[in-house]
Amino acid sequence: MTRIGVVVFPGSNCDLDTLRGLELAGAEAVPLWHEQGSLEGSAAVVLPGGFAYGDYLRAGVIARFSPVMRAVSAFAAEGGLVLGICNGFQVIAEAGLVPGALLRNRGLRFLGRDVWISAEQLDTPFTSLVGDGRPLRMPIAHGEGCYFADDATLDQLERDGQVLFRYVHADGTPAGAEGDPANPNGSLRAIAGVRNARGNVAGLMPHPERASDRLLGSDDGLPILRSLVDAAARAEREPALAAVR
C-alpha cells in the first residue's frame, strides 16, 4: 500500500480528517509530527488544514520554519508530491513552494460553506481521476483564502497550466473575480488551487477530505485524493526520491 504522510503541526485541526480521507482513497496514511525531520518513507506528503502554531502572526508563516518543513522542501525539490489543503496551502505558499499568496477573504469574515470548483488540468498528479472537469462540490472553511499574485504571475500561471482549480457556479460556468458569491473569498481570476512550475506541488483552499462521504453531502473530493494516491504509487518506484523520503 502506498504510504502518504500527513504533516501535523501544533494547531493543525484537519489532520485526522485528512488521514481518514487518504485511507478512503486507498493509501496507508501516517502522521508526520512537526518536530521530525523524516518523512518516514512517504511517497507523497499532505499538509492539512488548521491553524498551524495558532497562525497568530499570519497564516502559515511560522510553520514553514519547522523541521518537518525542511524535509518537505527537500522532498519537493527532488520532485516529491506535496499537496497543501487550506492552511496547508497557506503554509506552502509562505514557504515559496507554490506561487502566490492567500489574503484575507474579500468580506473580511471567516467563511464556511460548500462551494463548487472545477479542475482546469486533468492530467496532473492531483486531478488525473476527477473525470471530465465537471463541477466538484466541497466545503471551504477559512478566513484567509483570497488567492493573490501580480498580473504577470497570473498570466504566466494561466499560460503554463499551473491553475489547477477554479471556483465555478453549480452549473460549471466560471465564477467572476469579485462580487460573485460563487467566488467566496474574492480570489483573483477565481483561482481555488495552483501548482508549481514543475507540477509536483499543489495547494487548494477547499477541503476534498471533507467531501469523501456521500452521507456527508458529497464525495466529490475523493477523486482528488485518489489522484494523489495513484500518482504516489507510481512515484514510489522513482529511485531519485528514495533519499529524501
Partner: peptide, 26 residues
C-alpha cells in the same frame, strides 16, 4: 451567521446549521 463558523471540520457533519433542522454528526 452560521457561515462564519466552520461547521464541517472533523469531516463528520451530515447535516449542519444551514441545512435546517437538528444537526446530524456521524
Amino acid at each position: 451567521v452560521f457561515e462564519q463558523y466552520d461547521s464541517t471540520v472533523q469531516a463528520a457533519t451530515a447535516a449542519g446549521p444551514t441545512s435546517g433542522g437538528a444537526a446530524i454528526i456521524r
